[in-house]
Design a binder for these strands. Structure first.
Lengths: 216, 216
DNA sequence: GTCTATAACGGGATAGAC
DNA sequence: GTCTATCCCGTTATAGAC
């Protein structure tokens, strides 16, 4: 991208994607109409169909645009901490950081904070009308981190590690999905916009849960 | 309810509530139309509006019908384990069991298993068009369990315990919301319909997370 | 209480002029 | 690429016969 590009008005596609991201995060996928998106973006209704073809294709674009960089960052961090510990066991803290950090830290950029909410929603809602989309977006990530946990936590069965991974994702997704609810319920005791504090508490909880012995 | 009642055809209201529960669990609230509900229930479209007045009122009924018994059971179990430990500290395991058990165990009854999925969805989706409904349904439960954690886990601040409670709810809600995704991702390694096994893993993870020290 | 019929509206998608 | 206009369908909700 040239400097001139960076200073230009966003393209129609970008305006639509940004507006869709905001509205999907606020109202869900089924709860957001293409008309509302184009109105929010200040563009014509027909342009959304011209550029994306259908609402479903638009949803896929909105998600993959942001998920793919997160996936790359997660896998890169994971590989780094596995390589660093080539001799002994990799640090569980580093694995957790590699998974949770890239997603939660997006909230530092207020523009990207919108997508943080959407990330949580994806995990809980996208299964509705696109069961396979979730799989496409996250199956590689899930597989790699499951393998990493097998290395870092020897002595647990595959099943045990699947459950642990699942609970980690749940704790993260729920927190990302409804920051306003957290602020309300805790009456201001917790600030979900403070990414480093969120990470501190989440990592403490999750690493302990991952290490927990399971009755057999 | 008399024996005769139990053997009778369900009433129109019950048929609508049961169908709505199934479809809401599968497709979400915004993704489910009243027409689809009445078709599934085998009743007339207008009867839903006659009996419930509006879609929103129907949603409230579907949720409160099942959440209230769960809330009662949770609070009853919580009170029991606080009373039992009136001398020393209450058992953290018992508090976790009181929170998670009533929700997860519903899956033993296959009819109620539908609602288990809906429970997960409530936590992640109901905030959309009814921000206050979540509060009405769960604020008392959240408050009581937060208080119980303050007793059982002295040494943690209010904020720390709010985060821990939040992660516990997230791990549970995510697991309840998408059992079919769990089965798919783990390629059969995990069976989300086996409530006791789910509980075993979830309790191990959550109790360890609750006890985890947090950096300050 | 239950039905048919329909109002009133918003949804996704598209044709066709520019 | 962008607009207007429109098709066609599904939506919530209600009116009114039975």
């Amino acid at each position: 991208m040239t400097l001139a590009d960076a200073l230009q008005e966003p393209t129609t596609q970008e305006k639509i994607l940004d507006a869709a991201e905001r509205l999907f995060a606020d109202n869900g996928f089924a709860g957001t109409s293409v008309r509302a998106i184009t109105a929010e973006a200040g563009v014509n209704l027909a342009s959304a169909h011209y550029h994306f073809g259908s609402k479903e294709a638009l949803i896929r674009m909105v998600l993959s645009r942001r998920v793919e960089p997160i996936t790359q960052e997660r896998l890169h961090l994971l590989e780094a901490c596995l390589k660093e510990a080539s001799a002994g066991l990799p640090s569980l803290e580093a694995i957790v950081e590699a998974f949770i950090g890239p997603a939660v830290r997006l909230s530092l950029d207020p523009q990207r904070a919108i997508f943080m909410r959407l990330m949580g929603r994806v995990h809980s809602e996208a299964g509705d009308f696109m069961p396979q989309l979730l799989h496409e977006l996250f199956s590689v990530t899930a597989k790699r981190f499951h393998q990493a946990l097998q290395v870092a936590l020897p002595g647990f069965t595959e099943e045990e590690l699947f459950w642990k991974l699942n609970f980690m994702v749940g704790a993260m997704a729920f927190t990302l999905a409804a920051p306003q609810a957290i602020e309300k319920v805790t009456r201001g005791h917790c600030d979900p916009a403070d990414a480093e504090t969120v990470l501190k508490h989440m990592k403490a909880f999750v690493t302990a849960g991952l290490r927990a012995e399971v009755a057999r």
